[in-house]
């Protein structure tokens, strides 16, 4: 596992741990994503999946462990603005709620131009061209670019959030339940878009989700978390069709599908609440 400078992983996390008081939210998580790869982190509420994501993008300070993006660690909050901005070009995040993650007074195109002006030397016509290119990349047109967020549907807003994240050409995109708030028929559109983008660019995905059903459609690999620990990992295909950990099996068997019947684990008088 020696680091060859030529093929550094997009993301390498070792021994990541986070405690809040006595509560251990994340306990010894190791993970690695190759450049252009995609890893799903699956878990239910309280599994530590979102805390893991927040530590990776630098929104949360790890209690222990390291996060390396393209071989480099976080600059920390004492670093210079330029240094922190450089780090922001490595990793970007898309959040769950497309209604809360955009400024409602800023036109969609302007919100993209702002990021480009901050992070790049593009000005004037080249900048406008890049904005148009980004909008096009996520399937939005010029008219939608000139609109305020409230004129857009949930799916369209999520496209804007993805365009904003891609604007700086990050090495890693962290998607935290990025399709969970969308209607089923719109979810499929966004998942297809994400698959297309990954094929066309070199961006890697860390896809945080509670939904096993969509994992295979965006990710090559999957990691299952339960109560802060990794209980299973492997290629998405293998883990979903032939899970080894009892928890993964239970998770998979709880997803409604053809021929599925709900079952209860607790007896009537409840041996386990």
């Amino acid at each position: 596992m020696a680091d060859e400078p030529s093929s550094l992983p997009a993301l390498r996390v070792t021994g990541l741990r986070k405690t809040f008081g006595d509560f251990v939210a994340v306990d010894g998580v190791d993970l690695e994503i190759v450049p252009g790869g995609s890893l799903a982190v699956v878990g239910e509420s309280g599994s530590g999946k979102t805390t893991t994501a927040r530590m990776i993008v630098g929104l949360e300070e790890p209690t222990a462990g390291t996060v390396l993006l393209g071989g480099r660690a976080h600059p920390g909050h004492r670093a210079s603005t330029a240094e922190r901005r450089r780090f922001a070009r490595e990793v970007q995040m898309v959040f769950q709620d497309p209604y809360a993650s955009l400024d409602r007074r800023q036109k969609v195109g302007d919100s993209l131009a702002e990021i480009l002006a901050l992070h790049t030397d593009l000005r004037g016509a080249p900048l406008a061209d890049r904005v148009a290119e980004l909008l096009d990349q996520v399937g939005l047109d010029e008219r939608q670019g000139a609109a305020l967020p409230r004129a857009l549907s949930g799916g369209q807003r999520q496209r804007v959030a993805i365009a904003r994240a891609l604007a700086v050409r990050p090495r890693l995109l962290v998607l935290d339940e990025a399709v969970a708030a969308l209607d089923v028929s719109v979810q499929a559109q966004i998942l297809t878009l994400l698959t297309d983008i990954r094929r066309r660019t070199e961006v890697a995905y860390l896809f945080i989700t509670h939904d096993l059903g969509i994992v295979r459609h965006v990710c090559d690999d999957v990691l299952v978390m339960h109560r802060g620990r990794v209980v299973e990992r492997g290629p998405a295909e293998t883990v979903l069709t032939d899970p080894e950990a009892p928890y993964t099996r239970r998770l998979r068997d709880s997803v409604p599908r053809r021929g599925w019947k709900p079952t209860r684990r607790t007896a009537q008088n409840g041996s386990q609440a």
Binding site: G155, V184, S185, A188, Q189, G213, T241, R252, R257
Partner: peptide, 24 residues
Amino acid sequence: RALLASRPDPAATAEPLRAVPGRP
């Protein structure tokens, strides 16, 4: 049928995800 195709079975072998254009 479009709704059925947008939510494939997690355990079945890779059925393609079929998106419906537009929004509800």
